[in-house]
Amino acid sequence: MLRRNIDVFEECKNKALLKFVIMLGELNCVKEMFLLELLEGEKEFILEQVSEILKNNRTERENLVPLLQKVQGVLGYLPEPAIEKIAKTIDIPAVDVFGLATFYNQLRLNPPGKYQIKVCMGTACHMIGGQIILESFERRLDIVEGETTPDRKCSLERVACVGCCAIAPVVVVNEFIEGSLTPTRVDGILLQFDGDDQEEEAGEQEQEQESEGGQDS
């Protein structure tokens, strides 16, 4: 982007355009709420599912929250095209639906990752330094709570008490509980993901080889 900016910069000696280029540079650092790009064909799939839900339910404003919950139930999150479509059907500004979706903790704008990391922020975890754990995750994954890494591997969120305050601070990874966390353990957990992934890959390859071997004989 920077290179392109410089190119444009050289092309235009015009002052107004110059301002535009500077603005472009600033736009880049704005953090966006809809972080992830949709995969190929995903948009069509989303719209199909949302139309289905809209067809089978009352589309009045009072019913907006249940509608959003249903969409999230099917898709796992509320992608941009889904929100736009719902707003259009109910005939209210899209920004109102967006406001609602960002207000409630249950509703999420980013897809759940392969590893869903939930950092506990209940009273005990909060007191003993849950914030530090959350920040460690944020720094290592380069996302903030409520977001998903661009490869959709990890998603990070904060939850209220998960019920095992004795081993605070606690984090829940895909239903698996880790207690007495420290920032070093955070690194360990993330490393473990890589290990798990490699194992999985190896397992898959083995299976493939086996099935190929099976065909040969």
């Binding site: 899209a94 920004v95 960002t102 207000f103």
Partner: peptide
């Protein structure tokens, strides 16, 4: 009656 801005987050 545009609907361009609204409140978000909490």
């Amino acid at each position: 009656e545009v609907g361009a801005i609204g409140f978000s987050l909490r």
